[in-house]
Design a binder for these strands. Structure first.
Length: 437
DNA sequence: TGAAATGTTGGGGCG
DNA sequence: ACGCCCCAACATTTC
């Protein structure tokens, strides 16, 4: 990398790995200086991942290569580093004559701290640090109650969200690609290989960036049936920003309100995480700290492996283990089963999903688990206990999904139920009732 | 974005 | 014809 004396701006990619409709990149390119884009493989985050074949690291690595190629073809470059963000930034700010840093906001507690420290480093040197909304349609201060406090119930939130959407052109694209001629003319950066960071390629197939024809249009009718191709499978791409949320929201607005609602849930949980970072460490509702979880480790292991003896639960867990994906309906069923039938702390399940899901997103995963356990904002009431048998009868009537993932279902090989449904239901009701008074 | 228990209603069988 | 019972089918309440 050539050292330079000419002034540049830096655009910092994080969870927005695309050149199209990228708010921060657009603003950087429209700014007064040539732009050097960078990406940091964050040692703090990567060192906590247990699996050297973690498919998400492979995915990011692949997308970084693609971005570098595209930026190279446009006459620029992507500088890629591996390390702790503060250390990397200290070095960058020494090496380059940086006038301004541009990036897109990230609402996770760790990310907010990291960005505050980097912004402080910049500020010490008189460098501007600009962050933009890109990951969501509306962020923390844009959808509030009359008294300026955040909504904690989804339905009124979504009403105001939709009303707000009509007030202005919030879904308009940022034509970042049109301004790539303002990239700084660097060349030839190296991308650290996976091995040097302690990872290997995984054999996982990543979901397509393009949603197959008809999925969104027919989302409402098909989304609850795990054997159908009824859901978008875009979670991974939303997580890493390899597609634009605005583009998909426009499509949803045009084609299917139920799908739009799912995107609103995503905004909702991002906003909740931003306003209430404590949800990362415990229940949103304090009362639920009192629940006496059984936390049986052997039962937890059976749940993880998909050996509970409840076929719809086992199918879901095996799908997750095999592919890094689980159908949304089945996520609710498996989560309800872990927390309510087995009385295992939802945080154990949250951590397992975090480790396994390709589309893992802290805000949505935490929100979903707190919903299932009844501990969260706008949560399912604690007495709402999914009956695995009737869920199966409703959503996988002919057993197609179950047979796909639990081939030994119906044979002597298949385990007996880990616990009797009626008994577990009563036990759960009593435990919750006792805790909540 | 539940399920089970309990309550109500109305048609049909039957004495 | 009538009252009584049974029991789906649906509605409401409760967890």
């Amino acid at each position: 990398m050539t050292q330079t004396t000419s002034s540049i701006s830096i655009f910092w990619f994080r969870r927005d790995l695309r050149l199209e409709d990228n708010a921060g990149l657009y603003h950087a390119l429209k700014g007064p200086n040539p732009v050097l884009p960078i990406f940091i493989f964050d040692e703090e985050i990567l060192s906590k991942l247990e699996d050297p074949e973690d498919a998400r690291v492979h995915f990011i690595h692949q997308e970084i290569q693609r971005l570098q190629q595209e930026l190279g073809a446009a006459g620029g470059d992507l500088l890629v580093r591996y390390g702790k963000p503060e250390a990397v930034w200290t070095e960058l700010l020494k090496t380059y004559d940086v006038q301004a840093v541009y990036t897109n906001r990230d609402y996770e507690p760790y990310a907010k701290q990291r960005d505050a420290r980097v912004a402080a480093l910049c500020s010490e040197k008189g460098i501007s640090f600009f962050d933009f909304k890109d990951h969501v349609i509306f962020d923390r201060a844009e959808v509030l109650k009359g008294d300026e406090t955040p909504y904690v119930v989804f339905t009124p939130y979504s009403k105001v969200w939709k009303a707000r959407l009509k007030e202005d052109n919030f879904l308009q694209s940022y034509p970042s690609r049109k301004y790539l001629h303002n990239l700084a003319p660097f060349k030839g950066s190296e991308i650290p290989d996976l091995k040097s960071m302690g990872f290997r390629e995984s054999a996982t197939t990543f979901p397509a960036r393009e949603v197959p024809q008809g999925i969104i249009k027919n989302y409402a009718e098909n989304r609850d049936f795990p054997s159908r191709k009824g859901t978008s499978r875009l979670g991974l791409h939303f997580r890493f920003g390899t597609i634009s949320i605005r583009e998909k929201a426009r499509k949803a607005q045009r084609l299917n309100e139920t799908f739009l609602n799912e995107l609103i849930w995503r905004d909702f949980y991002s906003m909740i995480l931003d306003h209430f970072p404590k949800v990362v460490d415990g229940p949103f509702r304090e009362k639920y700290r009192e629940i006496e979880w059984r936390n049986d480790e052997i039962e937890f292991e059976k749940w993880c492996q998909g050996k509970t003896g409840y076929p719809i639960v086992d199918a879901g867990m095996r799908e997750l283990n095999a592919t890094g994906f689980m159908h949304n309906r089945v996520r609710m069923i498996t989560a309800s089963f872990l927390t309510k039938h087995l009385l295992i702390n939802w945080q154990w399940g949250e951590a397992y999903f975090a480790q396994k899901l390709l589309d893992f997103d802290l805000a949505s995963n935490n929100g979903g688990w707190q919903w299932a356990a009844g501990t969260g904002t706008d949560a399912a009431p604690y007495f709402r206990i999914f009956n695995p048998a009737s869920q199966q009868a409703k959503f996988d009537k002919d057993g197609t999904y179950i047979r796909k993932w639990v081939p030994e279902f119906g044979t002597a090989e298949y385990p007996k139920p880990i616990v009797d449904h009626a008994f577990a239901r009563e036990r759960c009701l009593n435990t919750y009732k006792f805790a909540l008074g």
